[in-house]
Every structure is written in structure tokens, then in C-alpha cells.
Design a protein around this nucleic acid. Structure first.
Lengths: 253, 253
DNA sequence: CGACAAGTTGACGCACGTCAAGGCCGGTGG
DNA sequence: CCACCGGCCTTGACGTGCGTCAACTTGTCG
């Protein structure tokens, strides 16, 4: 429970025009004006330590963030401590939209690795909607994509067996990571503990461990020093009966 | 598996200005201009029979709908027939936003009762974003609310026991129904079968039945002729450790 | 050196799933 | 009119997937 709040704020080091993410081919091109506005919209960067909490359920956040680099996750807690991880966050993902729109966060966000965030001010969201309909559309698009991922996660937790669930989750994270170029040197390594997986799948830690072992025995993944490496994405997808991500151009705000 | 496609299209019978939903106090007031645009945006009404399929996973839908009256649900199927119900739809809810934004529907929608829908054309969504930022904001808001509901459902399926899950689900549906004035004569009756509940909770039909019996024995609900009536919402919420819906003004498109 | 976080493994129990049978009811056709 | 059927709910018996408990390992950091 070392829920540190370690953060550090800094002025921008990455200008939006030279955003390291934007060249990725998953992201759609922006108009010059849009880019200029986003650049103005951006108020700075926030560096968050691994394991630190970015946003807390119940709080009102004045900010909206985009992940510039690193991994994180969204989760909810029950009063007796049960935790459900809702989704993972990686570069290009938006954080805190719910809070910005509806006032109060209904989930928390924690960093899985050192996390670098672009910070935006909630108040300017209205200006964005007023003057940049294309960006507004993009934000809705992003919200809709999150919903789509949640749908699939819900299907998984509700209807897949433990083995299928684990296979799905790892294939899912791996696929997402790949689209944003997170493959270290060929293979993708996911900075996650088995406890995280358990809390995502709705399983106990022990049973998660035994399930992952089966995946390892089948040579679909290997687990090593606090992370997971995928050996055979297609095998995982077949096992989980999962079709994969739809490959479409995404907006990046 | 009588997945009929029974629908009937008709010109509008309800003008947006006299929308029976809008007077409800959960919905925020609209500007005159917004209302005028929505009215122009609306292309007619669609009546769907109970049990009929409104939208099918994998299809490209040219339309966007708002529920005017009746109940429905969103769900996903796996290739071997396992079904996961994702959420329920009631008056004021938007249908088909994912399809309109991202091209392809990733879930299906079915009517639980006779359903009356307002129909909008996807192509005009861009115009809406260009000229009515307030409405655009509202649509994002609605998408965000859906995400919030999914978060809670995921927590439920992942981390609550069968009894808690059932209690949560019924309290959740009942609360939502109440905010849109769906209480028949005092009590709320939910037009749903136990199979639906099972497919929502990620449980088997048999175990769902036994779980509901426990709720009945505790006098929290009663089950009758193809529906569920809530006796004690607070009791259900306490049992599920659920805080309830946040009570905020919603937009209605 | 101890302390702690993360992973591993076996033993055992329970909350679920599965199978099977039957009841109730409305609809349909003889 | 009854006979039959299919949808929905109900209940018991039994099996199993997963949870819980507990002990041990390994690596890391002080």
C-alpha cells in the first residue's frame, strides 16, 4: 500500500509539433491549426513515478492528460479492498476525461512504470469544442474506443475461462503495445505483476499463477523478472477465441 | 433463437419540441437552436418488436438512435455461442454511437420490450460537431457515462460474489429506470428473464435462479410473470456495497 | 544480515457449473 | 374440449474450476 504521490511537474520538453508519438502510423495527421491549438492547450508535462497514483476515485480533477510515455492502469476499489483493474494505459491514451466531463472521477489511475504525461486544462475543453470540431470529434472517438475495449474486457471476465482470459489479456495488451511501437527489441515486454493480471481477470493470485504456468508450458509466453514476454500472439488469440484489434487510424490529442 | 428482424419505420409522430422525455428533470434544458437542429437531425422513428435485433455486430450502420420508449440491451457473442450482456438501454440512451464513429459495430442490440427509437443520420454527425459544440459536448458526455457504467459492471463481474452481483444489477437497473420515470405504479418492474440476468452477471442460468431465490427469501425483490420487481433498493445496495448512481443533470439528444 | 516484494507449489474446501427432471402457463391445432 | 408444445422457472444431485491457506524460493534493497 505504498501509494505514493510522487510526481513532478515541469514545463514542456516536448513540443506538440515534435511529439514523438505523432509520426507513428496509427495516428491520423492533424491540420496545422489543430496542432497549434493542441500546443496551446497543453500546459506542461507531469512525470509520475512507477507505482504512484495519478488520479484518485472521488476526486475532482482540474486536468486532462495524454500519456506521452510509460504504462499505467485504471482501477476501482471496493470498500473492503477488492480491486478491479479496468484497463491499461499506454502512449496516446487519454486520462481523466470522465472527471473532466462529469466532475468526479469514478476510478483511480496508477503508474505501472515511470509515466510521462501531457497536461491539459479542463476549462479549455469548452473552447476546444467551440472552435475545433475536428478535435472534439476525436475526443468522442477516443471515448468510444475506450468503451469498445471495456466491452471486450467485460465479455472476457464474464464468459471466458481462466485460461482463455489470461490468453486474451496478454494478447490484447501486446497488440495494443505493438501499435504504439512499444516493442523493445523485437519482443514486447509488459511491466506487470501477476497480481495485476489477477485483478484484471477477476481471479485470485494463486490461480492466476497456475494459469500463467499453463501458458508458459504451451510456450505461448515467458515470464521473467517482473514482466511478461509474448512468444506467440496468434496462439494466444486462438486460445482465447479473440479476433484481434480492428486496425484503424486513431486520433491523438 | 427467434432473432426476428421485425421493425417498422414511420415518419415522426413525436416532434422533438414535444418530446415526452425532455420534461423529465434529469435532462438538462436545451437552447432553442439546439432543439431546432436536433429536430432537423431526426429522420423518423423506428419501432422494433420485443425480441427483435436492432443492430448486429460486424455491421456498418448508417444510423444513430435514441431510445424514445421501451427497453433493450447491448451484448456480444463468442463464436461458440457464449453471450455477454454489456448493458441495458432505456429511454434517453443513445444506440449505435460506436458504429457511427468507428464504422463497424462491435456489439449487437436487441429489444427487451417493444422499442421506439428516434433515428438520426450518421452523416450529419459532422455537421452537428461543426455547428453545435454544445451538442457535441453532450454526445461525448453520454459516451463517457456509458464508460462509467461499464466500469462498474466490470467491477461487479470481476470482483463481486454471485449474490452481490445480482443485488447490484437489479439495484442498478432499478435506479436507472427510476430516473427516467419508468416506475409503473409505484414499483418498478423490469421486463427481463433470468437468462438475461445470467448472461449479464457471467453466471449459469441455474445458479442465477438459486441466487435470485436468496434475494427473494430476504424480501429484497419479487419475481413474477416474466419480470422482476424491487422491494428494497437500499437493501440491495447495501448487500452489493454499491454507492448508487451519481445524480447529475444529463443531456438528451 | 534481515526484510520485503514477487513468484511458486500442494492440500483442501467451497462456490459455482452441469446434468437431469419436473412444474407452470399461454398458444396452437386437433 | 383436451393434447401437445415451447418458453420460462424451479429444484436436487453431483462434479469441477477456482479460492484460500500455508509454506517455501528467489531476488533486491537496505
Amino acid at each position: 500500500m505504498a501509494a505514493q504521490q510522487a510526481r513532478s511537474f515541469s514545463a514542456r520538453q516536448f513540443s506538440c509539433e515534435k511529439c514523438p508519438l505523432r509520426p507513428l502510423k496509427v495516428f491520423r495527421e492533424f491540420e496545422k491549426e489543430e496542432l497549434a491549438f493542441v500546443s496551446k492547450f497543453k500546459k506542461g508535462e507531469l512525470a509520475v513515478d512507477k507505482g504512484a497514483t495519478v488520479l484518485v476515485e472521488g476526486n475532482h480533477s482540474a486536468h486532462l492528460y495524454t500519456v506521452l510515455s510509460g504504462w499505467g492502469f485504471r482501477y476501482k476499489l471496493m470498500s473492503d479492498g477488492r480491486r478491479q483493474i479496468l484497463n491499461y494505459l499506454m502512449p496516446g491514451d487519454l486520462i481523466g476525461l470522465q472527471g473532466s466531463l462529469m466532475g468526479e472521477m469514478q476510478h483511480s489511475v496508477e503508474a505501472l512504470s515511470p509515466l510521462l504525461l501531457c497536461m491539459f486544462e479542463r476549462d479549455q475543453l469548452h473552447e476546444l469544442y467551440r472552435n475545433y470540431p475536428g478535435l472534439a470529434y476525436d475526443i468522442t472517438w477516443i471515448a468510444s474506443r475506450e468503451e469498445q475495449m471495456l466491452d471486450e474486457n467485460l465479455l472476457s471476465v464474464g464468459r471466458r475461462t481462466a485460461l482463455e482470459r489470461a490468453a486474451y489479456l496478454i494478447a490484447f495488451i501486446g497488440s495494443r503495445a505493438k501499435t504504439v511501437g512499444l516493442n523493445g527489441k523485437q519482443a514486447i515486454e509488459i511491466p506487470i505483476t501477476q497480481q495485476h493480471i489477477a485483478d484484471t481477470l477477476g481471479l485470485s493470485l494463486v490461480h492466476t499463477n497456475k494459469t500463467l504456468r499453463k501458458l508458459m508450458d504451451r510456450e505461448l509466453i515467458i515470464w521473467r523478472d517482473g514482466g511478461c514476454e509474448i512468444l506467440d500472439v496468434d496462439g494466444l488469440m486462438r486460445l482465447a477465441r479473440w479476433e484481434g484489434l480492428s486496425e484503424v487510424l486513431r486520433p491523438l490529442v
